[in-house]
């Protein structure tokens, strides 16, 4: 008796490969979280036991109160007005240091807002970058007078 031999074409089924690939893409897209990779740069001065003494009158002191309000050289001030206040002083002495002193009880965001505003000074009519200093509590206790 002659047996009829079935002779199918040998091939790997690839029809579902696209489905698998798209499933993987969807998985990557759903699980990807976009992360912040930018921020405000801030150069730290070298920790020196004998820092240069800056006369109080030579610098501008910006104090940040616990509620976020600002006191600049003993005057209450709104953040958008700070640059206008600094401009004439910095025109006379561009190297005048500006000291930011946040209250320990104030939220961090207020310090960042002030620092961000001062860093934009050159876009707002001030010729040179402002020399900003943010002394830490330890430095204030050690060197403040």
């Amino acid at each position: 008796m002659k047996i009829k031999r079935d002779n199918p074409d040998d091939e790997i089924p690839t029809s579902s490969m696209a489905d698998i690939a798209f499933l993987l893409i969807i998985y990557f897209m759903v699980t990807t979280t976009f992360t912040a990779t930018r921020g405000l740069d801030f150069a730290l001065p070298e920790d020196d036991d004998n820092p240069p003494v800056v006369e109080k009158e030579e610098s501008v002191l910006i104090e940040i109160m616990p509620d976020g309000s600002l006191v600049v050289d003993q005057q209450s001030m709104l953040l958008p007005n700070v640059i206008d206040y600094l401009k004439p002083k910095l025109d006379v002495n561009p190297k005048k240091p500006v000291i930011i002193r946040p209250d320990p009880a104030s939220p961090y965001k207020h310090m960042v807002a002030v620092l961000d505003e001062l860093r934009q000074a050159t876009d707002k009519g001030i010729k040179e970058e402002i020399r900003i200093s943010i002394p830490t509590q330890r430095e204030i206790e050690s060197f403040w007078y």
């Binding site: 912040a36 405000l40 740069d41 150069a43 730290l44 070298e46 920790d47 320990p104």
Partner: peptide
């Protein structure tokens, strides 16, 4: 934040980025 910045200053870190 102040305590962390102070620790980084004492450790001689030169530049920090405040992520925003």
């Amino acid at each position: 934040v102040d305590a962390i910045i102070d620790a980084l200053k004492r450790a001689k870190v030169r530049i920090i980025y405040l992520l925003s």
